[in-house]
Design a protein around this nucleic acid. Structure first.
Lengths: 217, 217
DNA sequence: ACCTGAACACCGTTCAAGT
DNA sequence: ACCTGAACACCGTTCAAGT
């Protein structure tokens, strides 16, 4: 739906030079600044972003189709920066673990960005590549066609939910002292550590069952 | 942090009656209208909400402490309306399945509300009750103290991620025709059906592994 | 081509005034 | 006690003007 400018080509010798002599902005620079803004805990907004870039809000519209387009650019930049490439020769379950862990690591580095992305369609080609890698691994494992996509959805839901764990405040559950939950929260590890352990455990649990399912069929 | 007015007590006989003779608004009525607004696919906002209620935006501030407080009220109303009460005498894994399924059903009825809630602390007592029920079931099953909270976090992450699946557009993955993913998406069930199947499968996979883990220890 | 500055409709919030 | 209406600072977006 949204189309934004591609990167500028390096200017040819003697080509007419507009002002400013070299452009201040680009789609990538805007996306990177937006990520930095949100990472810093500030509220995302076109005006705040322009301020951060030392530029007028309307300038951004030369490079980007508005607020929503910037958010989609952020998703793309995160994916490109994470640059997940699955090593060759891994067994299917190792591939699944690798991709899911990489995705979660990407979220973990920018936890505050994640809430901006939820509920929007995924069109970014890099992100789709991750799902493709998962699908191919599961197909090679021998899962039937009509199950593969369902399993990908399970893994995706878990990775997303685990990532959102990190964008919540350190103690998500403000439990009452008298409750079992309250006792466990008080006696247990801090929320961040627990979130990490929960992610690892969840991956283990899911993979164990998937292996069993494959063996049983 | 935010404090909002409690429900009005029924007025005593002969008590002075202010205008309007019976109040138009209440915290619950505001929250319900907000949920209805978002369910209808319209963007959430104080002004839009006031318009829907046939009232001036500033009126809302007599009952509610602003935009964020309204969102937290929405979470509470969803939980109260869902009114999850776990039947007595269920085995621990049945309790877990029941609670997680109920949570997801709650999300499924109001998928567009969910993105508003993510990344904010959970203080609502009804919602905390669900986590409490999970924790108690896992403790009774014999899971060690330091694992229970981690398992609750796993289940929560999965339920949340699965709920968000539903707030995304029908086809989340805009995959290319040539890819394995594209072939599966084209040949498979629609996104909504797949999301349901994925949730069921995920619960099964997680519970199967948890049972095995308990037996193995 | 790229940025500025003025303008617009709209947002969330405050507060004095009305009943 | 509860709602209105005016006011404020701010938001996202458009567009003519400058270089």
């Amino acid at each position: 739906m949204f189309v934004y400018y591609a990167h500028r080509e390096p200017r040819a010798e003697g080509e007419a030079v507009p002002r400013p002599s070299s452009p201040i902005l680009s789609a990538d620079r805007i996306a990177d600044a937006a990520i930095a803004l949100v990472d810093a805990g500030k509220a995302f907004g076109v005006n705040a972003l322009a301020r951060e870039l030392g530029v007028t809000p309307s300038s951004l519209y030369n490079h980007v189709e508005g607020r929503d387009a910037i958010v989609e650019l952020m998703r793309g930049r995160l994916a490109v920066r994470a640059a997940i490439s699955v090593p060759d020769g891994l067994a299917w379950d190792a591939v699944v673990a690798y991709v899911v862990r990489s995705q979660r690591a990407m979220f973990a580095e920018h936890p505050l960005v994640l809430p901006l992305l939820v509920g929007k369609p995924v069109t970014d080609v890099t992100v789709l590549g991750y799902y493709e890698a998962l699908a191919e691994a599961l197909l090679s494992a021998g899962f039937p066609d009509d199950e593969v996509l369902v399993i990908v959805a399970v893994l995706d839901a878990f990775a997303l939910g685990s990532g959102l764990d990190l964008s919540a405040p350190p103690e998500v559950w403000q439990a009452e002292p008298g409750s079992a939950l309250g006792r466990l929260v008080a006696g247990g590890e801090p929320g961040q550590v627990r979130a990490d352990r929960a992610f690892d455990l969840g991956v283990d649990l899911l993979l164990a069952s998937l292996r069993a399912r494959l063996a049983g069929a």
